[in-house]
Structure formats: structure tokens, C-alpha cells
Design a binder for these strands. Structure first.
Lengths: 340, 340
DNA sequence: TCAATTTAGGAAACCGATTTCCCATAAGAT
DNA sequence: ATCTTATGGGAAATCGGTTTCCTAAATTGA
């Protein structure tokens, strides 16, 4: 395309000349500083407007030693959750006139280091590390300046580094309570693979909600899948439907598991939600479009992105940085699979 | 965290001093320019290494009037496809030492304009516009410098602007031919909503493959869904199974439709792929994890991203820019739903 | 009224690189 | 031996802003 943009070449000197003042006065006027009379300021502003002046951020960065850009390095190959968080980060950051520079590390430490060095050479003001792996190794010491860091979707025990993750425990309580409030009495739980930390948190939330309601936690109603996939949910559903007495609800540790479970239940003629209510966890995009749209505990992905962005901006501006694990509350999305 | 990075503050002047040369000589040595003796160059390089020197890209940009950064503006709220394309763009671009600055326009023209202005103020060298909507309105004229633009996942008829999109027509041929090669004779087609352009392209690909193989295009075997969702695929599947003679294959214009179709077929006791083979289109992440893993025509998302990145780098470097619609070939992912 | 203080605005330094320009010195030509 | 011509390297300009510093005029105070 390469259309022309006259404004590209307009510098502050052009503005100053048109307004009949010096470069420095023009700068002061444009940046609302003192020691400029109202009349002069207005003349400069008018001139800038007339010339469609927009300051060169590169030059600003050089002098101010602040680039108004943050780096975001992601681990993620699949990208199922990434986009929503990116949107949140961008939204939080753009309102402070920051931009995000995106990189992929593909989970590779060497690549991560190379990207960090590149970002630091660009004088970024902060970094968000977005990824799935629990991280205790920290960042390569050699590359880090005094640039604040926030972890997103992974938590860390490093001192001085805040992290933002979903409140899986609370979310599981929410999902279980929802079923209890609907009057369901025997609530099964289909969990994901045990080597994930979330599976513990979600099961404990389920247990906690039951016990708080004075119901016993019955291990016979808890199923564990070897993987998160729908197929494994289907297998769990088959086990479930062979119980002597069918539960009147199932809470699943992921939407894909829940969909598999519903599939198995449908196959054996059990009706969802009439015979048995189903609730998932994650709020995947496709969960709304199942034959029986799935009630689910939604991960607050966008809110997490927003919080991470705000924490980082805050650290950049105030130079204080606390090491806190922020667990952002999940929220319930009610659809047909749990009844009305 | 804010660890220390001694290297942050190392400037070329420090390197020059350590090597016992002037700033300008150091710069020439580091940039492999002429008029520096081999001995001196080596001394400078050693000094740079010792100090862990990394040039300040902001300063470089200011002088060179090239930021080695491109802007990427996306339309996309859902982000089902975005991430893969982003990965491709990043991969193509990073190998030329460029970075991506990411922005969201949320499909809003005013916001798009604001983001573009921000990016131009940052002196970006090029722009990729990533989105779903056919775009003929062009970019707001006022904001554009002579910055090259590439459209990704949307095509345009604007002069001088290349666009990168999937080859839906060719992909549909591929999917249909796959079924023909497996010996299937009566191949039905389940299409998406007619007001999308892709639905025409995919149907025409289906038709073309049939006619090329000498088979008639039978409108009675073509179904049209009002939406792309699984539920609508389920409805199409019900129509399908009520045909006097069941087809021995179905080609669906999306994976979600195909999954709905398989659901309906399973319900009525028809076996996939024995009684009827199913092929989808898109290659969504969940398609591999259905009860019957879905054979599908994959969108070449990452390759599209790579191509868009390369086209843009090329336009930046060579300052030539052609207006071509690049249709990137799809590829077939064989799974169980079409048999072996 | 005169000194002290504010205020307004300009000149110049600065951020950290690259690049132009210029000047020694060494090499080559006659 | 002298006159070019390369070659290596440094001084200074430059990119486009911000910021410091300084000075003249205006205001205030005694």
C-alpha cells in the first residue's frame, strides 16, 4: 500500500517554528509543564494540531529511558487459553499508553533467554511470562536488568515476583455449591490426571464444599482420568453409569471431560440434566455449543490478563514490587446441563 | 524481582574505552564495516564480549530510522485461530531480528486507527492486519506513512497490498479426493452458513473434485447449516440418516459440523467409518480427541503466519510490494473417522 | 524606589548509537 | 625523492525528542 503520510516527518522543530517559539518551549507546552504562558501553550498546541504532529516515541524513549513497552513471553504451543489473557494484558496496558511486544519461547530455556535479551536491548520496561509450567528455576540471571517481572498462568516462589493464576480451589467450591443449591444430593467428581496441581486444588474445592454443606466426601464417587481429553471423560462416564445407584450430579474438572461424560450418559439413555446434572470447568468456547450446552466454572482468563498488566504497570511506575500469588476468582456460567 | 543487570548500562563508549579506540571506530568494528584494521576490530570485539555489551536498540532505531519492529493488529475476539498465526509470524520475523508489537482493534475502526497511530509513532517498519472480515474500506488514509501492510486471514482488493489466506477451494478438493481414493462413492456435503465466502469456495471444491472424478454433483446430498456449531451439524446428521439410501461418506465444511454429524450417526447406530466415513475442515485442537478421531482438512495457520511475516520483511527490505492474494495450501490430517 | 524573587522562554547538553567528514600515516607510482 | 592514493581512526554531526541551565523581564516586598 505505502500511502503517504505527511505527518510522519513532522518534528517538534516544525511545530516550534510555526508557533514562533523554541524547541524547548514547544516541548514544555506539549507536555503540560510549567514555565510556559497560557497564550504560548495555546499557540504551540494549535500549531501541533495543524501539522498533525505526533512525537517520535523512539526519541522520547531514548531520552526518558522508558520505552512504554512491555515484553510478553509465552510458552504456549496450543494457544487454547493464551488469546484471552493477551487481550486482558493489552487492554490493561494500552490504557496507560504502553504496548506489548510478543515473543514465543516454546518452553525452551535457551530461546527464552535469547528473547529476554532482545527485549531488554529494546529497553522494555517490564516483562510478563505467560505459560503453563510451574517455574522455580527463575530467569537467567545474566540477562535481567532491574526490569520488573510478573508471572501469568503460572506461579512462582521467587522472591519479589508476583504471579497471577486462577483460583481453582474457589472455583471448584463454586461449581459444587451450584449443584448443591439446585438440590442435588449425590454429586460425583471426575478429575483429571493426578500429576497436575490443579487437579488437587479442584478436588479439594469439591471436598470442601461438600463438607461445608454437611455432606460426606465419598471416594467411591470420585473418578480420576489419565488425561484431560474427552475420550477419557467418556470412559469415566461409563464407569459412572455402572454404579449401583446413579448420582444425581457430576462435577468434572474440565469441560472436555464433562463433554465425554455427557456423551456416555446420553448413550445409555440417561437424561442431562433431568436424571443427572453436569458441570464442567474451564469454559472452553465449544462448551456452549454442545447438544446440551454445558454449565461450567469459567477460568477468569481476561481478568487475569488485566490484573497481570496492572500489576506490572504498577511495579514500573512505583518501583515497588511485591511477591504475592494472586488467585483470581472463577465465575459460574449457567447453561442447560445443570438445569435451570 | 528486579535483579541487577550490569550489562544494561554498558554503552558503546565503555567498549571503546576498554579497547582504547574512539566511539566511531568501535561502532565500525562492531558493525563489520570497512576502514577498521583486523587487529583493532578484534580488540573491540573482545572488549564488547568482556563487558557483555548489547547495543541499545532504541538509539539504533533513532539514528537508522528503522525500528526492527512490526505492528500486528487483530480483530479477533475469540482467538480460535489467532495463536497459530501469531506463532508463524513471530517465527518468520524473529529470524530477521524483528519483533512483533501486538494490538487489538476489536473490529472497531476508531480503535484500529488509534492503534495504528500509536504504532506509527513507534516507528514500526510494517503492519500485519489479522482478522476475519473482508476488508475493502482500506486503512484510515490519514495515519499511514510509507509503511508496508500485509493482510492475514482476510483478503483485500486494495492495490499494492498483499494478503494471505487459506486455499479453501483446494482444501475442499483435497478432502473430497481423499474420500474418493478410499473408494467411497456417494459423498454428501454438509456446508456452513451461505453468507460466508468460504462456504462457496468449499462447496465448489467439493463439486470440482467430484466432477473431475467423473461423478455427478447431486444437490440432494448437499446440506446447508444455518450456523457453524456442532448442534447444527447434529441437525444435518439427522437429515442425512433419513435419506432413502445412506451415503458412504460425508465431507463437512468445518470440524464442529462434522462432530455434530458423527454424533447423530452414532445415535442411530451407524458406524463411523465403516458405514460412513466423515471428514471435517479446519483441524481444531479438539478434533483429535473425539470418540472417533476426526480426519480433517487442516487450515495452514502457522504457514500463513510465516508467509505473511516473510512478505512483510521482504517489502520492508526491498521496498517493493506487490498486490497478490496468496492462497496457502491446506493439508490433510488422517485420523480414524475416514478409515485407514 | 530598589533589591529580591518569579516567571517565561531560549541555548545547549543529553540520551546512545550511526555516519559523515576530515586528517594523519603508510603504501604505491613516477 | 616526491607526489598521489589508500587506509585507519578520530572529531563532530545527527536522529528527535527532553531536560537542565541560564538570562531577561515582570512581579513582589520592604
Amino acid at each position: 500500500m505505502t500511502l503517504r503520510n505527511p505527518s510522519t516527518k513532522v518534528t517538534i522543530l516544525d511545530v516550534a517554528r510555526l508557533a514562533g517559539v523554541s524547541k524547548s518551549t514547544a516541548s514544555k507546552a506539549l507536555n503540560n509543564q510549567n514555565y510556559v504562558s497560557e497564550a504560548t501553550r495555546q499557540r504551540v498546541l494549535d500549531a501541533a494540531q495543524k501539522l498533525n504532529f505526533s512525537p517520535n516515541k523512539v526519541a522520547q524513549s531514548l531520552k526518558q529511558k522508558r520505552s512504554y513497552a512491555i515484553g510478553l513471553i509465552t510458552d504456549d504451543l496450543e494457544g487454547l487459553f493464551t488469546t484471552s489473557m493477551l487481550h486482558g494484558v493489552d487492554e490493561a496496558i494500552i490504557s496507560h499508553n504502553f504496548n506489548v511486544i510478543l515473543c514465543n519461547s516454546f518452553g525452551d530455556a535457551a530461546r527464552e533467554k535469547a528473547r529476554l535479551e532482545m527485549l531488554l536491548a529494546r529497553q522494555i520496561d517490564g516483562v510478563i511470562l505467560l505459560g503453563y509450567k510451574v517455574r522455580e528455576r527463575g530467569l537467567p540471571a545474566l540477562v535481567l536488568g532491574d526490569v520488573p517481572v510478573v508471572y501469568l498462568y503460572q506461579y512462582t516462589v521467587l522472591p519479589g515476583v508476583p504471579s497471577v493464576i486462577p483460583d481453582d480451589f474457589g472455583g471448584a467450591i463454586m461449581g459444587t455449591q451450584h449443584l448443591l443449591e439446585l438440590g442435588r444430593r449425590r454429586i460425583a467428581f471426575v478429575n483429571g490426571p493426578p500429576h497436575y496441581e490443579v487437579t488437587h486444588l479442584r478436588r479439594e474445592g469439591y471436598r470442601h464444599a461438600l463438607e461445608t454443606a454437611g455432606k460426606p466426601y465419598d471416594p467411591n464417587l470420585v473418578f480420576t482420568s489419565r488425561k484431560w481429553h474427552q475420550n477419557f471423560g467418556y470412559d469415566a462416564g461409563k464407569q459412572l453409569r455402572e454404579l449401583a445407584e446413579l448420582p444425581d450430579a457430576v462435577f468434572c474438572a474440565s469441560d472436555s471431560l464433562a463433554i465425554g461424560v455427557m456423551d456416555a450418559l446420553h448413550e445409555s439413555g440417561h437424561r442431562v440434566p433431568d436424571d443427572i446434572a453436569v458441570v464442567g470447568f474451564d469454559n472452553r468456547p465449544y462448551s456452549a455449543h454442545q447438544r446440551r450446552p454445558l454449565t461450567t466454572v469459567a477460568l477468569p482468563l481476561k481478568a487475569m490478563g488485566v490484573l497481570a498488566g496492572e500489576l506490572l504497570i504498577d511495579a514500573i511506575m512505583n518501583e515497588t514490587h511485591e511477591s504475592v500469588v494472586h488467585r483470581v476468582p472463577c465465575y459460574l456460567v449457567r447453561r442447560e446441563s445443570s438445569g435451570t
